[in-house]
Simulated scan of single mutants.
Amino acid sequence: MMKILKNLLILNAFYILLQCYCYTNADCYRRQYKQLSGGFNVIIKTGFTPVFNKMKVADKYMCSRWCATERFCHVWRFDNNEFCQIFHSMKDIITVSASLPGTMQTYYITDEDDQWFKVYFVKSGSGFAVLPSFLGEGPYESWGPATCTRTYCPDLFRSFLIDVWSDLPLQKVKLSLYKNNVEVAFMIFDGQGTNSSDWFSMSRVLDSPWKDVYKGAKNMYFSLFWKWSWRTFYAAKSQGGCVVDKGWIIVVGWNNICNWEKQFSYPYIIYSNKTEGIQWNGGHPFADSLAIYMSF
């Protein structure tokens, strides 16, 4: 069994390198893992058959290497110092518990500063419906292009941890916008005591590049989905008509009323590149993608 696992690791590693060459270098950096805090562990929901079977391994490092060869493995668990369970982040159905028998250790992939875990990513112009894909509403196939499957999709990623958001030892949430693979805007929120629908709030803002975004600011409009429009992750400073609307971030999901919202492909992401909110009608930069991160 160990020999078979080693051979599979070698073959999968070659496959990942080939995909990195063919598609993007984003998945080719050295992976770093961090243990989930507070004794919490990810487990497969009762009655669900996981994508990957549990295997006996020599140590947790072999478990991490196995996960690293699978594109959609971002979380893995090492049980009783001998068994490895890796998870498919978009297909497996999971629960989270802090009271499990035996010795279990759950690890998750982190970014380069060893702090943030990516739970969502969408590319501008990809055709995906942002809010349903973030919240997991409806079947996966209804979120966007049928050609983008959960086997490989460079335009969308959604982690199963969004489904157990309120059960996690969550500390902070970060929304980041990217252009040419460089972060151009961000907001960091207090994630304690939140769920997947209520964390995006001005009252929870901890940090951002804008001087007029701060905890306790009044008369601001923050919403995952703004009523009467297709605006999501809506962070507005003022509104009162197309020519006076002002803000920091909007993800536009459809051909709305305002001229500055009309584009050839959706979703598209606009943001303020100034030190404060800008008037959208006066021109605005576009971001290539949006990502949501958790910190435990």
Rank of each mutant, 00 (worst) to 15 (best):
I270V: 15
I4W: 09
S197G: 03
F157A: 06
C22K: 13
F200I: 08
I4D: 14
E112I: 02
V243M: 07
Q85W: 04
Q85S: 13
A217V: 15
D79N: 15
Y268M: 13
N180H: 09
L135S: 02
E112K: 12
S64G: 14
G253L: 02
A58N: 10
K227D: 13
K227S: 14
N259I: 07
L224D: 01
N219G: 00
S89R: 08
I270E: 07
S197Y: 12
C84D: 04
K211E: 13
P285D: 05
F48C: 09
R65T: 01
G216A: 09
I278D: 02
K118H: 02
L11R: 04
P132H: 09
K34I: 04
S289F: 01
G39Q: 13
E261R: 04
S238E: 11
A146D: 12
Y29V: 11
V173M: 13
R71H: 14
I86G: 01
D212V: 11
M202F: 04
T147K: 13
S124F: 02
I269N: 04
S176M: 06
G125Y: 11
K215F: 00
Y234V: 01
G241N: 06
F157E: 08
V243P: 04
K60F: 07
L131H: 10
C84W: 00
W248E: 01
P50A: 10
A291N: 10
D190M: 07
A185Y: 06
K60N: 12
Y178S: 06
V243K: 11
L224C: 03
T69E: 09
K91G: 00
L177P: 06
S203T: 10
L290E: 03
H74S: 15
D155L: 15
F83C: 02
I44C: 08
S176T: 11
S196P: 00
S229H: 05
T147H: 08
